[in-house]
Design a protein around this nucleic acid. Structure first.
Lengths: 199, 199
DNA sequence: TTTACATTTGAACGCTTGTTCAGTTAGCGT
DNA sequence: ACGCTAACTGAACAAGCGTTCAAATGTAAA
């Protein structure tokens, strides 16, 4: 056997990314072998190297893709002009939850596997993350300036709120007690309170 | 050479735990080899098996030790009788920060390497974690009942607050902008606000 | 039908992995 | 001084690792 009937490059490439995402999330980058990924994709290990230069690039591509999607999704929203910091914060929280919850595996990898990136690759992802954090920081700063928010330190508050929101991914389950809509409202309350929002 | 001069079992055992903690935190459990640990300890790989049954037990012991220390430290505090939920929450926050900040590596491992535990070992650590979360949940529930706190869901608030607090470990550096005391106050504010505390 | 190319196999490469164990030495109690 | 045990070495084991590549086969265009 060599080439398989019905084989297609784009399909295999997509399956590679999907499989790697799931396996990396479940077992960790270092613990997953190329052969294991290949088996799940339904191909021999050698074939994977038509779609990735090496294992490291595979990890980087997944993370880079995820961060690009995140930032693109934020940029792509329809935003009314001149809305209050409170409305901005509300929009950010809802966006964050809606974007992150359906991407549990990607989010998990993005937080867990940073240390397995080469320094250059790490830099790229880190920058993207900083860009995202800056969005929230700008909102908090604006609210702090005009008096609608009251936090002792906008930088720390930024980290705290993002950690709080992202932590959701560690316990949320689709079959759980609360619907996505309810969770959204609960977290919105928590974040607005934490920011000391005075409507 | 065989036994080395000045060698002592307890010393090597301690070095093994310390070295493993640092290396697992920096590179991840799966990415660290027993030989790498041995080199750092200053011993051949075979010698490590005098102090751990296998690599898995080594990881488990580190996590188990950490969780036991955490729960023991909480139990061992001096607690006045009959204090208000607000005071209880304040005590919890300060305790959490003071305990976790100097243990960056242990905390990191505790969150990152859970998936590398066998199911039985995972269960043990998970239970300890649940015990810890229950402490905060009880405080929030008490405050919710007597009206000093106002949160839409005490369970979610518990997760959110712990995520917020533990997230600190990802950005805190000793040489950073803020002193430990300042950070403590900032986080205390954030948590009390998030809990909707009305003094 | 032939040609060109996309896709995959399967074997091979050198290296590392966790773990075991017989043999060797250091320190200590007697 | 002797013997016992604690501590460690160094080699060995089978298995698995990431990666490369010539060869084989499917697909599509000419």
């Amino acid at each position: 056997m060599a080439r398989k009937s019905g084989s297609s490059g784009i399909k295999t490439a997509k399956q590679l990314h999907e499989t790697a995402t799931v396996l990396f999330a479940k077992n960790g980058y270092a613990a997953v072998s190329m052969r294991q990924i290949a088996r799940e994709v339904g191909v021999q290990a050698g074939a994977l190297y038509l779609y990735t230069a090496d294992k490291q690039s595979l990890l980087f591509d997944l993370l880079d893709e995820h961060m690009k999607d995140l930032l693109d999704a934020w940029e792509g929203r329809t935003t009314p002009h001149e809305i209050t910091p409170i409305d901005q914060l509300e929009r950010f929280v809802r966006f964050h939850i809606r974007f992150h919850l359906p991407r549990a595996d990607e989010v998990f990898i993005s937080y867990m596997e940073l240390r397995n990136l080469t320094p250059e690759n790490f830099e790229v992802i880190q920058n993207a993350r900083r860009t995202y954090e800056a969005i929230l920081h700008d909102i908090l700063s604006a609210g702090q300036t005009d008096g609608t928010f009251k936090v002792s330190d906008t930088k720390v508050a930024t980290y705290a709120i993002i950690a709080m929101l992202t932590g959701m991914n560690t316990w949320y389950r689709d079959e759980g007690r609360l619907s996505l809509d309810m969770i959204e409202e609960i977290y919105l309350d928590l974040v607005l309170s934490a920011a000391g929002a005075t409507p």
